[in-house]
Design a protein around this nucleic acid. Structure first.
Lengths: 148, 148
DNA sequence: TATTGTTATACTCTATAACTATA
DNA sequence: TATAGTTATAGAGTATAACAATA
């Protein structure tokens, strides 16, 4: 090795793998994926959110949202409601069961985040800000989405 | 939104997407994936590396290495050599063409890294170290690989 | 025409088990 | 029996194009 270790690309991939594993360790037997969790969290805070908006926030293509919502609906955790104002849109709302599960998941997520806080200490804030700056890379780019 | 923005998990995913896009922007028309690049970089520094070792360094399952090397071999960039000492192993070596392309890719990668340096300044080093600490999460974990 | 959600398709990645050849 | 590489398979994720309904 040697060359890769000092690069952001390699390091961020390893770190993301570790972070996601840590989250799934807490999620345990809930059979909820990170993307499903993210959809639920966004929907809870934004009851009027549409599927296209969800796709943009989660940085996935619009078609990906469909099976994710299908899974949540099949488990009775969320519902699609046709928007009266513009009947092309569907508003995503959590059911009572969905809200209850989200509370549980957020508790689990907090355990995970607390573990990160303990590992990173004060440098956590600096890293978060730096990571958010990196998001600005795509703004600079000529445009275009993912290549691969 | 709101909830997700302050989390490491969400932020690291967005950041990784941006970083990878930025790398592919530089790789341009080379038709080399990040994983292929990583294999070439590791093989160049460790001429005796086996496929199993590659898999571990790159954090992919051993079967994933096979099609990656097939692609590199098909383009005449790398070769598998059966190890004389233990004929179960194959040593991965780059061809002259592979080494030449790797030099080019490293130049492109350096442009990408320089862009990150410019964006992040001194905080880059702190972030790199913090990200590497996060890799330690999996060590703490009960064990096990990816969940999903 | 343009947009939202959807379907369909192809490709990649991930995870796992099982096979072969070696040891 | 154990290990390295391979094959095969099933399940997710990703990227695109195209369609129906609606605007």
């Amino acid at each position: 090795m040697g060359y890769l270790e000092g690069t952001i690309g390699y390091t961020i991939r390893r770190a993301q793998l570790a972070v996601f594993q840590d989250i799934y360790r807490e999620f345990g037997d809930t059979r909820i994926t990170l993307t499903q969790f993210s959809v639920m969290a966004v929907a809870a805070d934004n009851p009027e959110v549409t599927q296209a908006e969800l796709a943009e926030v989660l940085a996935v293509e619009r078609p990906r949202i469909v099976p994710i919502l299908n899974a949540l609906e099949a488990r009775g955790l969320a519902k699609r409601l046709v928007c009266d104002i513009d009947r092309r849109n569907r508003r995503i709302v959590l059911t009572v069961e969905g809200l209850a599960l989200l509370q549980d998941l957020k508790r689990r997520f907090a355990v995970h985040e607390a573990r990160l806080d303990q590992m990173l200490g004060v440098s956590k804030r600096a890293m978060l800000l730096a990571l958010q700056e990196l998001g600005g890379l795509s703004a600079q780019a000529g445009s275009a989405g993912n290549r691969r």
